[in-house]
Design a protein around this nucleic acid. Structure first.
Length: 470
RNA sequence: CGGGCUGUGGCGCAGUUUGGUCAGCGCACCUGCUUUGGGAGCAGGGGGUCGCCGGUUCAAAUCCGGCCAGCCCGACCA
């Protein structure tokens, strides 16, 4: 009884598909205040897994977690002119507290450069205090014009790293290292989303940065999603907040800084990079539930067998859940887990049990295979490994099939209707970039012809990757 | 903030042109029975002052005015 799809097909209406999946997979709801979201348990479980993986990599990169206040004095924002210009339109400002007008309004942090650097200036005295490597997991607020759950919400969750270094080279290398070792590695090996890396053009740069590096993923509708950024801040904040140190020769100098972040936007990226008309597809390394053991129906010994199966899967290190809600029809439950993108289903019914078997089904393939109860954990494990690789390969092949080499602005515009275009930056330039902007096409990043990260924005053979974006 | 579309039980919608006999449908939910190997069936049942405020009228989901919210397309952005 193949029913009509549960979700609006992607081809028919992609934004609608996205809305449907948020509801049907129980990921998030709109909050009561415009632009806010309620992240539901399954959506939050995805975020927690992302946090855990990113946090470990950040610690491996030598940064320590700390926490700074939600409220920032308005005057702090005003100290860095580019920064305040960039953010003031989207600030939430508190003017009252305890029933009284505040002497100085406080802003709800849109990002924490200012308040963190105010403290860096207290903590940094000597070259021996450097590098100072701090990370914070927090919520931030930006009063966005056009909110969309996970992709652009008024309040969102993120991680922001802030560092101070003795030299420009060291700061640049650290920002690039974060881009590669923390972000790119996480996105490609855990999220299974291939990303393009490069520099932002001046037009797209973070307010206050001297260089912004980014990672861009392609969604299933051909649009780009900026999945993360890593900035060289130069010395502007150091100057404004007076962050100085005595070097080994006894000279006073300003530090060189970086900041970098990824956010709950990645949940949206995960949905749109892998999801299909059956629902979410969650790569095994990320999945909060890697395998669900389903009791097909309540016959003799079936539910017990499911719990035993779950125990042996868990013992093999697999994140597992049992679905023994036999009061609900099998088809309904199978569909529900498919919607949630759980990589592997292990189904056990009386027929399986008779033969000492279980049925193993992969979210990405339609074939069911029969496995013996005793060897199932091994087989699930290896299926999970295969799926991780396959999901990445599929995303990569699909993306590459939608990247076009272009020679003119017109060709870029045409290619951007379905995907990305690559064009020599020398041929496009800021003038071409401005022309493309009329059609909502932007330069997503500047990279070397081989796709690697430049060492400098002055390199002469840089390629501009262009597309429409979220 | 500009352009377009839309607000009716949890979700999706019909009804608005021609004001009254209009508060209805599907899904979801509750109870019972039968079911359960790909969104089960039957029977019974609960739930909405029709986005909000005001106006016109004997009478407003329906007409008028204002406001608010959501979605899509732009400018902004993680």
């Amino acid at each position: 009884m193949a029913k009509k799809g549960v979700l609006t097909p992607q081809q028919e209406d992609f934004p609608r598909w996205y809305q449907d999946i948020l509801n049907k997979a129980e990921l998030a709801d709109n909050g009561p205040v415009r632009g806010t979201m309620v992240i539901r348990p399954y959506g939050y479980a995805l975020w927690e897994r992302m946090q855990a993986e990113v946090d470990q990599r950040i610690k491996d990169a030598g940064a320590d977690n700390a926490y700074f206040p939600l409220f920032i004095p308005e005057s702090y924002l005003n100290r860095e002119s580019d920064h305040v210009e960039g953010f003031s339109p989207e600030l939430a400002v508190v003017t009252q507290g305890g029933g009284r007008e505040l002497a100085e309004p406080v802003v709800v942090r849109p990002t924490s450069e200012t308040i963190i650097n105010a403290y860096f200036s207290k903590w940094v005295q000597s070259h021996r205090d450097l590098p100072l490597l701090i990370n914070q997991w927090a919520n931030v607020v930006r009063w966005e014009m056009r909110p969309r759950i996970f992709l652009r919400t008024t309040e969102f969750l993120w991680q922001e790293g802030h560092t101070a270094h003795a030299t420009r080279e060291e700061a640049r290398d650290y920002a690039a290292m974060i881009l590669h070792e923390v972000y790119r590695d996480f996105m490609e090996s855990v999220l299974a989303i291939p990303v393009l890396i490069g520099y932002k053009t001046e037009a797209e740069r973070f307010p206050g940065a001297i260089n912004s590096m980014c990672l861009e993923g392609m969604m299933r509708d051909g649009k780009a999603l900026q999945m993360g950024t890593s900035h060289e801040l130069g010395q502007s904040f150091a100057t404004m907040f007076d962050i100085t140190f005595l070097d080994a020769e006894g000279n006073q100098a300003h530090v060189w800084q970086t900041s970098w972040g990824v956010s709950s936007r990645m949940v949206g990226g995960l949905i749109m990079a892998h999801g299909d008309d059956q629902g979410l597809v969650v790569p095994p390394r990320l999945a909060p539930i890697q395998a669900v053991v389903i009791a097909v129906r309540d016959a003799e010994g079936v539910v017990d067998a499911c719990h035993h199966m779950a125990e042996s899967l868990a013992a093999a290190g697999i994140r597992v859940r049992v679905d023994d809600r036999t009061g609900t029809g099998f088809g309904r439950r199978a569909t529900d887990w498919e919607l949630k993108g759980v990589p592997v289903r292990v189904e056990i019914g009386p027929r399986d049990l008779e033969n000492g078997q279980a049925t193993m089904v992969s979210r990405s393939g339609s074939d069911k295979q029969t496995v013996s109860l005793s060897t199932a954990p091994k087989q699930v494990e290896s299926l999970l490994d295969d799926m991780q690789q396959q999901i990445y390969n599929d995303a990569m092949a699909w993306r590459d099939s939608r990247i076009v080499e272009a020679a003119t602005v017109a060709e870029v515009r045409e290619a951007a209707a379905t995907g990305f275009a690559r064009i020599p930056w020398a041929d496009l330039g800021p003038e071409g970039e401005a022309v493309l902007a009329d059609d909502a096409v932007t330069v997503r990043c500047l990279q070397r012809p081989d796709g690697s990260l430049p060492q400098s924005g002055d390199e002469t053979d840089l390629v501009a990757v262009c597309g429409r974006s979220y």
